[in-house]
Each structure stands twice: as C-alpha cells, then as structure tokens.
Design a protein around this nucleic acid. Structure first.
Length: 331
DNA sequence: CATCGATGTTGAG
DNA sequence: TCAACCTCGATGG
C-alpha cells in the first residue's frame, strides 16, 4: 500500500477532518496507551507528510510520528471528506491550518489540484464502515488491533500495524526529517533536484538501490522504483556516478509527476498516454497500471524481450533488460 | 483453514 | 544478509 503518495493523502485527510479539532485519543489495542493519554483532549494543529513519514502535531509540542511500514494502515470513518468534496472545496486544502505551527514548514510546497474525475473512496474498508455507521452508531467499535484511535465529534481515524508510532518533540522531528532525502511535494524547486542529483552521482551504488534509499530521495518504494527506471530507460544496475546529470534531472521530475498524480488519484498510475478506455481499465486493474511491476514473464511493453524479476537489496526488482540500458551503452 | 507474500524498516549477527 | 515486526488479501487444499 504505502509509498509516498499514500502518506500525503493521509496527511491531507487529517488536515480536512481533524486539524483544528479537539481530539479524543485512545489505544484500543493497548500498546500505545501512554502516548494516547498524552494526546487525549488536545487539539490537532497540523498534519504533514515527508516521504513515507507522517507527522501529526498537537498542542504543547506533542507530535505523533507514524510510519506505516509494509502493512500498516489508517482507516477513516464518519464524516470524512472524499475526493469529490475536496474538489468542491477548492483552493488550498486543509481546514484552517493556524499559521506558525511547527509543521507548517513541511507541508506541501506545491498546491494540489483535486479536481480529478476520481471520486471513489480511498479504500474499500472506508465505504464498508460508512455504510455500517448509517445503521449503527458513531463511533464504530474498533475492528482488530487498533494501535491508535483519533476521534473528533464526527470523524474517526484508526491506525493498525505501523512500524513506527511514537510521540516526539520538535527537535526529534527535525532529526528524522534531516536524515531524509528530498520529497518533491515538500522540497519543490531546483535545490531539491540538485540535492537528488548530487546524492546519486557521488556513489557507485546501483541506481536501483539508490531510488529506494530514503536518504537519497523520499517516498519511492518498490513499485515506483521499477516503473521510474523503466520510464527512464535505465538499467537498474547502472552505478549512480555513471548516470548523466540530465538523465537524473529528468528522473527527479518524473518522480515529481508520478507522485502528484498518485496523490491526486489515490492510485499508482505509472503509464502515460492512455486512451480513456485504457485509463478506465488501468484504474480497475492494478496489473494494467504498470509497465513492469509484477509483470515478469510478460513481453516488455516496448517489445524487446520479456520483463524479468530479480532480487536487489532483498526486494523483488522488475525490469525489461531489452529496453532498459546503461547510458554509456550507446543510447 | 493454513500458508504465503507484500507498495518497509530496523537491528542483530 | 536475514529475521522480526504484525496485518491482511490472495492462493491452495
């Protein structure tokens, strides 16, 4: 589930329905009881995402840091903004984000346009829970192992299965963010691009590893890694220092494009130039959204042999050897 | 119903 | 390099 786009969407959801509200916090599962007690009764002041990290700032410099890891998830229920209502609200999103809160500096530098045609709920679970609530009462009983429940008068967010869920002060947050590479939605502009290019070109590590390294660039996971390299026509084993600057700049800009699209649609759509028909099919079937990810054994979309699966850095790497090449090898 | 694997990260060895 | 974390959909019997 969670590559960078998911976390940005979650941050936006919190800005819409929780920021500015007094929060009743609890830990139904019990494993975060102490932290929840610290948050309980305090107002949420800001919500922001940097790469795959989510930060929820509450009064008195209490910041909830959440990393979903491989299978963590937030479930929202109650009166929750959907894409459609977000689109109609227009302009800068987020409910009355009070100026001057600590996290303001990390919120999206790029205003997001939510005027897309996608109105589906973010997750199936959300639709199911909303339906139940019409019949049942609010808030719904927590389902499964809920580490944290954040509750307003009308909305609820449940967190389950996170890798990280901890209370931090501003200094500790600065340390975490300081170790992260640039996130195109936080660090827009030429400096961020420059940081990325320099980080890649100073090492001989393969670009397939560097794109997954959160200190090089934030928010890319296994899906976006494979797809970005295919789109750039880059061999994943190419050492970073051998990649021309202009190729890396285009790679950064492509990541920014895919990330923005992912936040806007809620899907990792990594194909370009689809007809309306193909788009509809791709949005319905995840296989159809990607060029190479989980498409090993199938013909390369560019017709040069088959997509292969290999292991790199302990993760599955999908790529098309006929199409993806080293820049030196005669591009 | 049991098992596997996953869009991630950390820390032990 | 690999197990552990701890969740759930997909797969197979």
């Amino acid at each position: 589930m969670p590559e960078g786009h998911s976390i940005h969407r979650i941050a936006i959801q919190f800005r819409h329905n929780f920021v500015g509200h007094r929060i009743a916090a609890s830990s139904p599962q019990g494993r975060f009881a102490e932290g929840a007690a610290q948050l309980d009764g305090r107002t949420m002041l800001a919500a922001s995402a940097v790469g795959k990290h989510l930060f929820l700032e509450f009064e008195d410099d209490r910041i909830l840091h959440v990393h979903l890891g491989l299978y963590g998830a937030w479930d929202f229920a109650g009166e929750i903004s959907t894409d459609a209502t977000v689109a109609s609200s227009g302009g800068r999103m987020g409910q009355t984000n009070q100026k001057g809160t600590f996290l303001d500096q990390y919120e999206e530098a790029t205003p997001l346009d939510f005027g897309g045609s996608i109105g589906a709920p973010r997750r199936l679970r959300m639709a199911e829970q909303e339906k139940e609530e019409v019949l049942d009462s609010f808030p719904p009983d927590p389902v499964g192992a809920v580490r944290v429940r954040l509750l307003t008068e009308t909305a609820v967010a449940d967190l389950r299965g996170p890798t990280a869920c901890e209370l931090l002060d501003p200094q500790q947050v600065r340390v975490i963010i300081g170790k992260l590479g640039p996130d195109p939605l936080v660090h827009a502009g030429p400096e961020a691009e420059e940081r990325f290019v320099r980080a890649v070109r100073k090492t001989a590590k393969p670009i397939g590893l560097l794109l997954m390294d959160q200190s090089v660039v934030s928010g890319i996971g296994n899906v976006y890694r494979a797809e970005l390299l295919f789109r750039a026509r880059l061999d994943p084993y190419t050492p970073g220092k051998e990649i021309p600057e202009d190729v890396l700049r285009e790679l950064w800009r492509d990541w920014a494009r895919l990330l923005e699209l992912g936040v806007r649609t809620g899907q990792m759509m990594t194909k370009d130039g689809l007809s309306d028909d193909e788009w509809a099919r791709a949005m319905a079937d995840q296989q159809e959204r990607h060029y190479v990810y989980k498409r090993h054994g199938l013909p390369s979309p560019r017709g040069d042999g088959n997509v292969v699966i290999e292991e790199m850095g302990g993760r599955n790497l999908y790529w098309a050897p006929g199409w993806q090449i080293r820049p030196e090898a005669g591009r």
